[in-house]
Design a protein around this nucleic acid. Sequence first.
RNA 1: UGGCCCCUCGUCCAAUGGCAGGACACCGGACUUUGGAUCCGGUAAUCUUGGUUCGAAUCCAAGGGGGCCAACCA
Length: 562
Amino acid sequence: MTQETARRDFIREMVARDVASGKFGRPVGTRFPPEPNGYPHIGHAKSICLNFGIAREFNGKVNLRFDDTNPSTEDVKYVEAIKEDIRWLGFQWDSELYASDYFEQLYEFAVVLVRKGKAYVDSETEEEIRQHRGTVTRPGTPSKYRDRPVEENLDLLERMRAGEFPDGAHVLRARIDLAHPNMIMRDPLLLRIRHAHHYRRGDAWCIYPLYDFAHGLSDAIEGITHSLCTLEFKDNREIYDWLVREVGFENPPEQTEFARLNIDYMVMSKRKLLRLVTEGQVRGWDDPRMPTLAGMRRRGVTPEAIRTFCDTIGVARAESRVELATFEHAVRDDLNLRVPRVLCVVKPLKVVLTNYPEGKSEELEAPYYPHDVPLTGSRMIPFSRELYIDRDDFMENPPRKFFRLAPGREVRLRYGYFITCTEVIKNPAGEIAELRCTYDPATKGGDAPDGRKVQGTIHWVSAAHAVACELRLYHRLFNVPDPDAVSEGRDFIAALNPESLVVVHDARIEPSVARDPVGSRYQFERTGYFISDVVDSRPGTLVFNRTVTLKDSWQKQKAKGA
RNA sequence: UGGCCCCUCGUCCAAUGGCAGGACACCGGACUUUGGAUCCGGUAAUCUUGGUUCGAAUCCAAGGGGGCCAACCA
């Protein structure tokens, strides 16, 4: 707010200029204008951070305005979801408003336009209107109703509102120019008849404004100064300006467009997300694989990480696609500094310590945070003769640079002892069933008094004390970086990653987490960040969602060797 | 093909006529009881061609490439 030297995006620079010049003669006003027909996603988060951020930085106001002008797709459940997600992201709006509350005013504006000869009632069919609009390379032709007398237009408009006509019988159009090079300006439709129940207005209205008619005028009614939207609305700016001018607003708001957010391996279109949900490709709007805020929340992503991410990617006018790594970095960077570490074995392999007394067990103290995280706390973890380690941490014939357990090799058990593998036990099928190891009692806590070093440290749990749990390992939902760009005629559904969710049913976790509340976040050491699932996890049936893996330079090493 | 918008390291964003910089990614190294984190170092870009200018990523022109617009969706 005070950092005038901080680098700013082109929009903030513009707002700063406008504030300095007193251009609008009123405080900065922004708005976030979702249509309540779907759940907000990370792309909306970018817009939310921008609009709410600017209002805060410039001591302005931000409105949450639902652009609810289409009764057939909208629902209260979406307005509730949107409000919840904005709050969760950490923002508070100054006013909660609805375009549907402006229907009366919009109707009056329509009358004004008709009286000025700037709008008319067209009675052509939908098909005729489309035909007469021309194409991008060919001008359109006027409707035969275009020159109806004002009085007739007024009468028709009134009767449209009164419900005298069926859907599609008439529309109100702006009278501009059928040959306009900007298609949007070829007498755009303003009001259409829709005998449909509106989730807020009920059956009070049967004519509904279209986006172009409602949006700019709603901004103007609210005294918005800076109306920020995405690039695809660039052409609409012309009708926006035309309408606020014709209706007579002084110092009307001005629209500025910025590039929408795209992230590799994600789809951001609400239409596509809705399809994923309705077709059951995912388990709902809050499926942790979804780019929705609800999905990310359930996945374990924090609002702070999302806000940091939005800061990182910046705001510009060039279309772009952000690498997934940029997003994952923001997530790890935030989680690293806030969540406790615990031990969880994903694919258990039994280890028997042949020189550890049978029936004995002990408690080892394990800090929750590593030395470089400024948080404190620890818990005791049980240790005994039979343990589980991860199958991936043992190889019978290890390649070079494999620093983990192998026959004859010594490794450290995290917070525990050094162990050495002495024997590999196989089942009749020849698969490794169990390892026999010896432990060195002198290395309790993880250090050898003789200064002996080990290459690797692996995680483990005590077989008798560990708690079975379910792990949901999420991967990218799509196999291609740009699922929106699947070739013509092919469905983006075909690009879905069949392994976007891998469920592990028999993971084993240290018992300390058993009674933590659902929604608790952890780092499972050496594995990744996880959150206990708020929907399905309960005491006795623990379920964890993997938020993001840890960076894995061993995987990278392996890939290079391959 | 009409109109409009955009084009800087692999990716995202800066540089607002004056030394092309940051973040992520990548590659090395240090450190390490997480192959995590951290620290240090490195590779790496102005779409092309002209023009204006003492000086151009920046201004102009042409070309190339990408995107948006022809829903009674937003």
